[in-house]
């Protein structure tokens, strides 16, 4: 396969069926996972980052040689940095100081600049900091990508993830499950799937407590709620513990050969739990990124 631009490589990820973790389920119930770590930036975040950049270039909010700025816990930052390098856009990222070394290395390799926020304030501290920087900036050089509030984020999933899942399951998908960080994946994919079949259940997942170890996920009752999040569009919201999610991430690697990050562990733990309640159905979720993002030096 030959592509003229790195941007064309985003999306079109494979869908694979789980076989071992779901061995206790009847043959009439399947769980399929979309391998988002196959994106060129290594995570599902390539999709919203590409859409946000393309929409801003089209509207003129961002121009070649301009500077994109946003807060991120990691993967969106990697995606912005990679696409920015490919398109000649400068990228500045506000990240909590305790973001993993590997993420700092990756984004700097692409040439992005990092501004650190207080690790004790988590990703909400990074959000407040980027808003402060943008508000106090008189140079007008920034395009504030604002992944938590930018409709281009869910639009990316509505336009790409949803039709891919619909096609890849031969229109048989009955449930879509995804944990929420910005909530772009569940809001956009959910909307796109319901346009094709309003009977599809769209199920959000959140950490069960404000203090959790699920990097990339938000406990909505205690966090700054993203503007793109609309709980009324979801059929259900489930809670998952850090321990269950970590254990499922380990099982995915050991039993299925899919070495996934912790948020994917949360997704699969709840997708399997949804599947256990069904007599028949096709449950789909996403593997947001690869386990190697979480190996520390």
């Amino acid at each position: 396969m030959v592509h003229e631009s790195l941007l064309d490589l985003v999306g079109h990820t494979p869908l694979v069926r789980l076989n071992e973790i779901t061995a206790h389920l009847p043959d009439s119930v399947d769980v399929w996972v979309k391998l988002e770590f196959m994106n060129p930036g290594g995570s599902v975040k390539d999709r919203p980052a590409r859409q946000i950049i393309l929409d801003a270039l089209e509207s003129g909010e961002l121009t070649e040689g301009g500077t994109l700025i946003d807060s991120t816990s990691g993967n969106t930052g990697v995606a912005y940095s990679m696409l920015g390098a490919a398109l000649g856009i400068d990228v500045e990222l506000v990240m909590p100081e305790n973001v993993s070394q590997s993420r700092k290395h990756i984004v700097r390799t692409y040439g992005a600049e990092i501004i650190f926020s207080d690790p004790m304030e988590g990703s909400d501290g990074a959000i407040r900091k980027v808003e402060e920087i943008v508000e106090n900036d008189d140079s007008d050089e920034y395009f504030f990508a604002d992944q938590y509030n930018n409709p281009s984020n869910p639009r990316a999933h509505e336009a790409t993830t949803a039709p891919e899942i619909w096609r890849q399951t031969d229109e048989a998908v009955t449930h879509f499950v995804a944990a929420t960080g910005t909530s772009g994946t569940i809001m956009g994919t959910g909307r796109g799937l319901k346009q094709r079949d309003p009977g599809i259940s769209v199920i959000g997942v959140q950490p069960d407590d404000a203090f959790h170890g699920l990097e990339g996920l938000k406990h909505m009752p205690t966090a700054i709620v993203p503007g793109i999040y609309d709980e009324s569009a979801l059929d259900d919201v489930r809670r998952v513990s850090t321990e269950e999610s970590w254990e499922m991430a380990q099982r995915l690697a050991a039993e299925e050969g899919i070495a996934a990050g912790y948020s994917a562990g949360a997704n699969v733990a709840e997708a399997v739990s949804v599947a256990e309640e069904l007599d028949e159905g096709v449950v789909v979720t996403v593997i947001c990124d690869h386990a190697d993002r979480y190996f520390h030096d």
Binding site: P119, G122, G181, T182, L214, G216, A223
Partner: peptide, 8 residues
């Protein structure tokens, strides 16, 4: 006591 990084 440092929290994990949440969200996006």
């Amino acid at each position: 006591v440092v929290p994990a990084i949440a969200g996006g």
